[in-house]
Amino acid sequence: MRSLLSFLKFLLIPFTLIYASVLSVRNLMFDWGFLKSSSFDLPIISVGNISVGGTGKTPHTEYLIRILQGKYKLASLSRGYKRKSKGFILADKHSNSLDLGDEPMQMNRKFPKLNVAVDADRVNGVQQLITNNNELKLDCILLDDAFQHRYIKPGLSILLIDYNRPISHDFVMPTGRLRESTSGKKRADIIIMSKCPKDLSQSKADELKKDIKPQAHQELYFTCLDYAPIEPVFKTSIELAQLNEAKKESLGILLVTGIANPTPLRKYLSAYCSDLNEIQFPDHYTFKDKDIHQIEREFNNLKTDNKLIITTEKDAIRFIDMKIESDILKKNMAYIPLQIEFLHKTKDQFDKHIHQFVENFN
């Protein structure tokens, strides 16, 4: 199997070279000024990555919201991946994941004071937010997944690199998983290596720093993902203490995910239960009625009476918007929010950098 995959990757090399060349020319056009990047009279922080797949952009963006929202009026702007709507939309109390996409809708529900907007044309999206600024009174805009969107020049650019998929050992698509050459990391002001082990040693961090080779102007941080206490997906009488108080040998969990990589969550949950079944759907999957029936069947097949359906926060948003009729899901489904933790006591340094950028803009 590995030899077959290696052979297929070998066949893709010409396409990789063509794609990489096109991207390099595009970036040079921006670097030399032939293609224009728009700047705005408002602090804009971009959060993005170079590789495809999850690097933890949403929990890192949510972290920025938490440290800024107490002092500043914020807006988030993303393209709204896989939404069914078009053009610029500013979320309100009637919005759902079909209008915004799952991740923007997650932030819209989670942060009531945040102005959540989506637009595939980020320049137009920022212009629309600024046009409405007499009403919104914004102090800062957060751009989600916009590292390659060079038509906007953010005041501060944060690049995420997955610890488990070092970009120095990867290739540009389609042979590898990189959206552009690793040289693109020079555009970042802050580089965060995400999804690190909690016990990452300082010596290992120093070794990784040598591999990343940050430039003199770039700050490098290491973060890990942590799981917050579980929450009910629906407002029911679910007994969430089950997960923390139940004995491992008596708890059954059905894990239902539509994300790029459910492995970390699976490993986390395996420590809490004796019977772990799993249903995996594609990333950003739109759940259907037949999927609900499958979930019910798999849940009923768990071999213990003490059992739960666990999903991710992003997936929970889509289940909520389905207006679920199933009593099994309503009474037994919970999600586990993700949060980030800065390693090696660098949280205060990072927070200070972010606050100083917003305060000192202009």
Rank of each mutant, 00 (worst) to 15 (best):
L68N: 00
P43D: 04
N49S: 11
M29H: 13
Y19K: 08
R66S: 10
V25L: 15
V25C: 15
R26K: 15
L64K: 00
K73I: 06
G48D: 01
N49Q: 08
L12D: 01
L28K: 13
V47W: 04
P59Y: 12
L74R: 03
P43F: 08
A75K: 03
D41Y: 09
H60E: 08
V47G: 06
S38D: 11
S46N: 12
D31S: 14
S38C: 14
I45C: 09
T61P: 01
L28N: 12
G33H: 08
I45S: 05
F10C: 11
E62V: 04
N49V: 05
V52Q: 07
S24K: 12
W32H: 06
P14Q: 10
T55W: 00
R66V: 06
P59H: 13
Y72Q: 03
T55R: 02
L42Y: 06
S46W: 05
H60S: 06
T55V: 07
V25A: 15
S51M: 07
G53H: 11
H60T: 05
M29A: 15
I50Y: 07
E62F: 02
P43H: 07
I50F: 02
I50E: 01
V25Y: 15
I67L: 12
V22D: 09
P59N: 11
S46L: 09
L35N: 14
N27S: 13
K57W: 03
T58C: 05
L64P: 00
L11S: 06
L42E: 05
I44A: 07
I13A: 06
D31R: 15
S38F: 09
Q69L: 03
L23D: 12
K36L: 14
L11M: 11
I18M: 14
L23A: 12
F30P: 00
S38P: 03
V25Q: 13
A75W: 02
F15E: 02
R66F: 01
V22Y: 11
F15Y: 11
V47L: 12
L11H: 04
K9R: 15
G48E: 01
L42C: 10
G48C: 05
I50P: 02
W32A: 01
